[in-house]
C-alpha cells in the first residue's frame, strides 16, 4: 500500500516529535520493533515501549507499559507507532485519542495499514503515516541511508546541517 506522505511532511513529523510510544514492542533483538526502538532511542527520542506481554520489564532504560492508558497523565506523547496487525490499529488509535491529549501523529510500521484508522486519525487532526518505518525514514531523510545508495530525495548545495 503506497503511502503518499511527502518527504517534507515526514521530515517535519520526525523533527517535531520528541516522545514516541511504541505499541507492540518486542524484546527480541532481531524483531523490527526492537531495532526501531533501539535506533530512535539512540537518536535522542524519548521512547515509551508498550506491550502487555512484557509489562514491567525494562527496554533501553524505559519500563515497558501494558497499554497507552498506563502513561502518566500530563506526559506529552507526540507520536504513537504501531507494530501490531493492521486490524488492531483502530483500537490503538481509539485508546490513544482517549488517553493522550497531545498526540499528533499515528504511524504504522512496514506492512501495516488500515483505512478506517487512517480516516479516523485524520478526522481527529492527526498526521497518519502507513506502511513505513520511522527508523528507515529518519535514516533516509537525514542522510544516513545515502551511505548505502538509498535515494534520500535530498537535493541541496548547502553544507549538511545548513539546509535551507
Amino acid at each position: 500500500m503506497p503511502d503518499n506522505t511527502s518527504d517534507e511532511t515526514l521530515r517535519r513529523i520526525l523533527r517535531d516529535a520528541k516522545t514516541i510510544a511504541a505499541v507492540g514492542i518486542s524484546t527480541n533483538p532481531v524483531r523490527p520493533s526492537y531495532f526501531v526502538m533501539r535506533y530512535l532511542h539512540y537518536r535522542g527520542y524519548q521512547m515509551i515501549p508498550v506491550n502487555p506481554a512484557y509489562a514491567g520489564q525494562t527496554l533501553f532504560g524505559e519500563e515497558i507499559l501494558a497499554s497507552l492508558s498506563d502513561i502518566p497523565d500530563g506526559r506529552q506523547v507526540d507520536m504513537v507507532e504501531v507494530f501490531r496487525r493492521s486490524e488492531m490499529v483502530p483500537g490503538v488509535l481509539k485508546e490513544a485519542l482517549e488517553t493522550l491529549s497531545g498526540v499528533r501523529t499515528l504511524w504504522m510500521q512496514f506492512g501495516i495499514y488500515n483505512r478506517e484508522a487512517e480516516e479516523a486519525g485524520r478526522a481527529a487532526g492527526l498526521e497518519v503515516v502507513q506502511d513505513r518505518c520511522p527508523k528507515v525514514e529518519y535514516q533516509r531523510l537525514f542522510g544516513e541511508l545515502r551511505k548505502a545508495g538509498i535515494n534520500t530525495g535530498i537535493v541541496s548545495s548547502k553544507l549538511p546541517g545548513q539546509m535551507a
Partner: peptide, 19 residues
C-alpha cells in the same frame, strides 16, 4: 561510490541502487 549510487537511483526513479 555512494554518491553515484544515489544519483543513478534518483534518475531511474528507484528507492536505491548498488554499484
Amino acid at each position: 561510490v555512494a554518491v553515484l549510487q544515489e544519483r543513478i537511483a534518483t534518475l531511474e526513479g528507484g528507492v536505491g541502487a548498488v554499484c
